[in-house]
């Protein structure tokens, strides 16, 4: 979406792993003889995001996409693997240097505009919080001026700064959230389902605003969503996640015109047909399994119509394909049927 002269890597995620211990307390585990339970939320994921582009992660609930968002902004510390932002390693949150890189360069927009703003704070204080926290500006006059600029940037007015969050609609609150994220002038913004709590007409406003801001400020986005149509609209590159793994990472155009991984095809097939073409989509059997005990080898094999013996025993590795890579034995062995496009 931007004129890339020399593409520079803004975010580099290498073999990222995050496990959560979700076992019962030690004592009850001893009595009931249960083993420890480990939730493998993110289990070996690598991708790169170029400066100024939008990289989207798409998947169903429990696939680990929100965990990646929280790892990238430093809310969680990785179990293993590396996250580099502008070449600086930020995976160790005890290192002051990593924290400085994080706070300076990374911000986040949250899903729920009703929970992401402190209800007891004035809007202007909410927006000014990053400025005050980092002491980028010290005198109140300069802070006020900057807050007004930010309000203007997201099409709110100066008067709105003196109100409380509950006086605004969902879309306006999301604008406030965006203004706060921009206050510390970050280059990379993690957007965790920023429009999924909004109504369609408001969603369009927020998506347009995000695209405009990206162009104006040269921002890099990691966009997390379960809505493929929104992802199609906003992304340069897309990663499709399933149970802690990336099934397919491609540039947006290749992915949507010729999806390769069976799971990507499944997801594309679930999109309701708004063109009223009379297409009868095939509902897919089954649901996402419990991530505490995911299927061995290829995570998708129990639901995959093309699974064979190898898929049940051997974990697929990334196979390069046009526009990116796919983790699928079927693609590697070239035994999947050609994709019948639903996209014209």
């Amino acid at each position: 979406m931007t004129n890339k002269i020399i593409p520079t890597t803004e975010v580099d995620v290498q073999n990222l792993v995050k496990y959560f211990d979700v076992s019962a307390p030690w004592l009850s585990r001893v009595f009931s003889g249960q083993p420890k339970q480990i939730l493998k939320a993110v289990d070996g994921i690598s991708f790169k995001i170029q400066k100024g582009e939008t990289f989207s992660l798409v998947g169903e609930s429990g696939c680990g996409k929100s965990t990646i968002a929280r790892l990238l902004v430093g809310l969680y510390e990785p179990t293993d693997g590396k996250i580099k932002i502008k070449g600086h390693d930020i995976s160790n949150l005890d290192s002051p240097k990593a924290l400085r890189t994080l706070r300076k360069n990374v911000q986040m927009i949250f899903q729920d505009p009703f929970a992401s703003l402190n209800p007891r704070w004035h809007v202007k204080d909410i927006i000014a919080e990053p400025i005050r926290a980092h002491k980028t500006l010290s005198d109140n006059h300069a802070i006020d001026k900057r807050v007004n600029e930010l309000l203007d940037l997201v099409s709110l007015t100066k008067v709105d700064g003196d109100k409380f969050p509950h006086e605004f609609s969902g879309g306006q609150r999301q604008r406030i959230s965006i203004a706060r994220a921009l206050a510390s002038k970050p280059e990379f913004i993690v957007c965790d389902e920023p429009t999924s709590a909004l109504d369609v007409s408001v969603q369009a406003q927020i998506l347009n605003l995000m695209v405009d801001l990206q162009k104006e400020l040269g921002l890099t986005y990691l966009f997390i969503s379960h809505n493929l149509a929104v992802v199609y609209h906003i992304s340069d590159h897309v990663g499709v996640m399933y149970l802690g793994r990336l099934a397919e990472v491609r540039d947006s155009k290749s992915l949507f015109s010729n999806p390769l991984h069976p799971y990507t095809r499944l997801l594309l097939d679930t999109i309701p047909d708004l063109d009223m073409s009379g297409r009868d989509r095939m509902p897919v059997a089954g649901e996402v399994p419990n991530p505490i005990d995911p299927p061995k080898a290829c995570r998708f094999h129990p639901r995959c119509p093309f699974a064979n013996e190898r898929c049940k025993t051997e974990m697929p590795l990334p196979t390069p394909v046009p526009g990116g890579y796919v983790e699928c034995h079927g693609v590697q062995e070239n035994r999947l049927p050609a994709y019948v496009p639903i996209v014209r």
């Binding site: 430093g74 706070r103 986040m108 992401s116």
Partner: peptide
Amino acid sequence: KEYVQAARVIGRTPIFIMIRH
């Protein structure tokens, strides 16, 4: 709630978050 996470992303200390947020 996400406003507390937002404050953590911004880099506020636990004490500040507890008292002010």
